[in-house]
Design a binder for these strands. Sequence first.
DNA 1: AACGATCCCTGTTGGC
DNA 2: TGCCAACAGGGATCGT
Length: 290
Amino acid sequence: MGGGTVTGGRPEGALPELPEVEITRRHLEAVLSGRVLESLSLTHERTARHNASPDEVMTRLQGRRVMAVGRRGKFLEITLDDGQTMVTHLGMSGRWAIDADETIPHTHFVARLDDGRTVSFIDPRTFGFVAVYDDEDLAGSGLARVGPDAWADPPDVDGLAQSLRGRTAPIKALLLDQTPIAGLGNIYADEVLFRAGIHPLTPGGSLDAVQLGSVLGSVQDVLAEAISNGGTTLDDLAYLLPDGNAGENMMSLDVYGRKGEPCPRCGSPISRIVVRSRSTHFCPTCQAGP
DNA sequence: AACGATCCCTGTTGGC
DNA sequence: TGCCAACAGGGATCGT
């Protein structure tokens, strides 16, 4: 067990990426849509860091009705009835829980709804946040810099080619950048490149149309599988779905966290390198070097 | 502009 | 056994 550590060559911990955020969105949508936020409790300064203070967040949310729960990349956008938007990001260790025990450690935010239910934000490492924006705030926020959603609004080959043109950074780094395509994190970026047969250090701008098509197809395959499996829980104490269950996608990971294990396609030992300070797993045979 | 480095943060672990 | 440095990573920010 453990958060973000390596044991026996297998990293553990929670890494909320697009599938985990999408599953969270669906749960929150079911509970929040049409409901009024009656009472708020935001008890951690850092969780409110995108606003002036926790008090400001609570005041601006108080009494608002939820109109819609959307998602772009790994950001959740909760549209309110007065034109404001509540934006939340799970960071590394954040999760939303429904009707949870409010004494769970690292519970930084609780909203009680007009039907008596509650939604809680639990985030040990506080990389996540809860923010309230008006339109002007939103335009200057991190959400405004996020590119097309990898699942709901994926770019086509020409669009991706255009955003990668001339880029010399490794494709792994560009997949994590959230600008060319939004929603992939460290796990699924590695899985996508494995399925596409592309070495993670390949300069992004050097990929041809066939390779970009393969990347985009792999993105859809990897995300569809992860969502249908309920997301990836690497650690039964870390990432949990809002209903408290664990995702079952870990068994479907081909390369992430499998350094030294045989490639599921060719049997070569999986390699681990570091790209942009992020652990990167690939098959040296199936993903020939740049 | 593009790219890389640095920082934030905490639970867990491996080394001593 | 116990202490503690090292490690994991998304996004913001800054320097080159």
